[in-house]
């Protein structure tokens, strides 16, 4: 159902201005060295030249810290006040990268399997994702090895690809995308013959996604889990910046007789993540926690949900203070899986 149109460069402002009449727009904003998603009021505020935001677009739908409910103790009972989800405004995530857009698929899946998380779902239902294809990449990007790509459409409602002329190829991908087109149909013109692929960044494939799961499972006993994680500080930055990481903690905050219960981002890299009250820890070492991170993304999620929990955005490698590079580490693990002593009995 993909419909393609030409959007003149001057029409971009028209589209933005139309959307902001009724919606909150979140877009990448550059402040110093950091580009991050912020609520914006005009297209001028939006960063133009960036490869990737530091924190992913997940932070808009899956808040870093989200109140699950308020409570108040009174007259020997407890009153629970749930957040009013009807008050979540209509949102547009503008300037999402295809890798981030794809990650919403795994977030959606985790927050909906068996038990529907209406806090996440309500925000998701009110959001439209307008992504921009990548015409540049850096040495950390490996989307083409992670089932995504610089012009990948999955997860976006509209994907815009900048053409050499300065105009945009607009792909309307979903009903939400059609609704936006219908808000301002005049700017969506007949597309030119210019190919989308010619205007995308070239990102070499470094490993084969197809055999990845099996190879990692074969590498379960590899020494590499230890050697690769030796420099891991357990800081959790990788999970923090990851567009697909969805693990969270639940914490209470109390002020006298009232307070909140909220959920906040967590990381499997923290030793406390799995530690029992008794002190026993099922994943005692950083190597086991590193293996969990990789296996969850590339083996468990594919088994449970049918797709990986990584879209190759490369943020974890960019953010790692100890320079752990997931792309290189995965390639090494794949290589090591062929060694017979690593086979799981």
């Amino acid at each position: 159902m993909i419909e393609s149109y030409l959007l003149q460069s001057s029409s971009l402002t028209k589209l933005f201005n139309k959307l902001i009449e009724t919606r909150h727009i979140y877009a990448p904003v550059k402040k110093g060295m950091v580009t991050s998603f912020n609520r914006v009021e005009s297209l001028e505020e939006v960063a133009k030249d960036y490869i990737q935001t530091t924190i992913s677009a997940k932070s808009i739908l899956f808040l870093r810290n989200e109140i699950l409910f308020h409570y108040k103790q009174e007259n020997g009972d407890v009153k629970i006040m749930e957040p009013d989800l009807q008050r979540i405004p209509e949102l547009v995530i503008w300037g999402c990268r295809p890798c981030d857009a794809k990650s919403f698929k795994s977030l959606h899946s985790v927050f909906n399997w068996d038990y529907k998380d209406i806090i996440y779902s309500s925000r998701e239902a009110r959001s439209a994702i307008i992504s921009f294809s990548c015409n540049q990449a850096d040495e950390y990007c490996f989307c083409t090895s992670a089932g995504s790509g610089p012009g990948h459409t999955e997860g976006s409602d509209i994907l815009l690809t900048k053409l050499k002329s300065g105009d945009y190829l607009a792909e309307i991908l979903t009903e939400k995308g059609q609704l936006i087109r219908d808000m301002i149909p005049a700017i969506f013109e007949t597309p030119s013959s210019e190919s989308k692929e010619d205007n995308l960044a070239r990102i070499p494939i470094v490993f084969d996604t197809a055999g990845l799961k099996q190879k990692l499972e074969q590498a379960w006993n590899s020494e590499l889990w230890i050697t690769q994680s030796m420099r891991c500080l357990g800081c959790g930055a990788c999970a923090f910046v990851c567009p697909s990481c969805s693990c969270f903690d639940i914490q209470d905050e109390k002020h006298g007789k009232e307070g909140v219960r909220s959920r906040c981002w967590d990381s499997c890299g923290f030793s406390l993540f799995t530690r029992h009250t008794s002190g026993h820890n099922p994943r005692e070492t950083q190597a086991e926690r590193w293996r969990q991170r990789i296996m969850h993304k590339f083996s468990y999620l594919p088994d449970q949900q049918g797709f990986t929990g990584c879209t190759g955005c490369g943020r974890c490698s960019r953010a790692c203070p100890a320079d752990m590079n997931i792309r290189e580490h995965l390639a090494a693990l794949i290589n090591d899986s062929t060694s017979p002593e690593n086979r799981v009995a």
Binding site: C247, F248, R263, R275, P282, Y300
Partner: peptide, 19 residues
């Protein structure tokens, strides 16, 4: 089995034993 849990319904991500 017992493992540390937060949510109880497969979202918070910590009680897994393998898959």
């Amino acid at each position: 089995l017992e493992n540390r849990m937060k949510c109880g319904f497969g979202k918070c991500g910590r009680c897994n034993v393998g898959k």
